[in-house]
């Protein structure tokens, strides 16, 4: 009963390791599905979300909040999967998003550029130059994304509990090492941690649905959650926005109760004008 978040670089064998760990432990494997699911659920085009999470932000992108919106969706999905427990997540910043939960084993899989390029070359039938180019571009783009969204250096080994270099260690050795660490009690999901992840997941989903809805998107609404009880604070302009916000988050599966403390600023202003 645990969660493993794996960060990998192209050709590092991270996905192979994740697949093997998931199969051996009977855990769910979540890698590209995360994005697809995010797209389905929040009704935005998958390709755009792929762009938001995978490619290097252009200067223009940096000024588009749509990028942040998509990232919020992805985070919501990552947290939701983690809340379900018994899952191996690969990529999409999951090791960073889930860093604050003590039951999550954060693993980074890497290997020297040349080794990875050779693997990509063999696996995808690319020429040596194209493979190296692919690996380097992938590193740059994924690294830039994480810096842009989370202000972290994904190569910083202290972001992970374990860093495996697959240049000399093979998939089996990496899998066994991960399993060995996972056996420790501290990585078992305790009821308290389970609740904390669920709350974080519901908070993230609430933020995501409020961003998806064009009515609530421009408003400053703050979401918090405790024991599946959501509370909304912040301010909107008109009462209908307040109601829309509550209606949106009340539909999220798992939410027990919504405490709506949103202030309607328009009403306050009008009240002040009348007095």
């Amino acid at each position: 009963m645990s969660v493993i978040a794996i960060s990998e670089t192209a050709g590092s064998l991270g996905t192979e390791i994740a697949r093997s760990v998931a199969a051996r432990l009977g855990y769910e494997l979540a890698d590209r599905e995360i994005i697809t699911k995010a797209a389905d659920r929040f009704g935005e085009a998958a390709t755009e979300i792929v762009h938001a999470t995978e490619e290097k932000p252009t200067l223009w992108d940096r000024f588009r909040d749509t990028q942040r919106r998509y990232m919020t969706y992805v985070e919501a999905i990552v947290l939701e999967l983690a809340a379900a427990d018994r899952v191996v997540l690969v990529g999409r910043g999951s090791a960073i998003v889930l860093a604050r939960f003590p039951n999550v084993l954060r693993v980074r899989v890497t290997a020297p550029e040349g080794t990875r390029a050779r693997r990509v070359e063999g696996g995808q039938g690319l020429t040596a130059d194209a493979a190296l180019d692919y690996v380097q571009r992938s590193d740059r783009e994924l690294g830039a994304r994480l810096r842009f969204f989370y202000h972290v250096d994904w190569d910083d080994s202290l972001r992970y509990d374990l860093v495996v270099n697959t240049d000399r260690l093979d998939v089996a050795a990496a899998v066994h090492t991960i399993e060995q660490l996972l056996g420790d009690e501290r990585f078992q999901t305790s009821p308290e941690v389970g609740r904390a992840i669920l709350d974080a997941s519901l908070t993230a989903q609430a933020k995501a649905v409020l961003l998806r809805n064009p009515v609530t998107r421009p408003r400053q609404i703050v979401v918090s959650c405790r024991d599946a009880n959501l509370s909304l604070t912040g301010s909107v302009e008109v009462p209908s926005e307040r109601e829309a916000a509550e209606a949106e988050v009340a539909r999220i599966p798992g939410v027990k109760h919504v405490g709506n403390e949103i202030v309607v600023l328009g009403a306050v202003r009008r009240g002040a004008g009348a007095a």
């Binding site: 992970y160 374990l162 090492t177």
Partner: peptide, 17 residues
């Protein structure tokens, strides 16, 4: 990190782990 085969952070892991 590429100078090593394995890197461990003892932020959460203890000596036994």
């Amino acid at each position: 990190p590429l100078r090593y085969d394995l890197l461990l952070s003892t932020e959460r892991l203890d000596v036994d782990d």
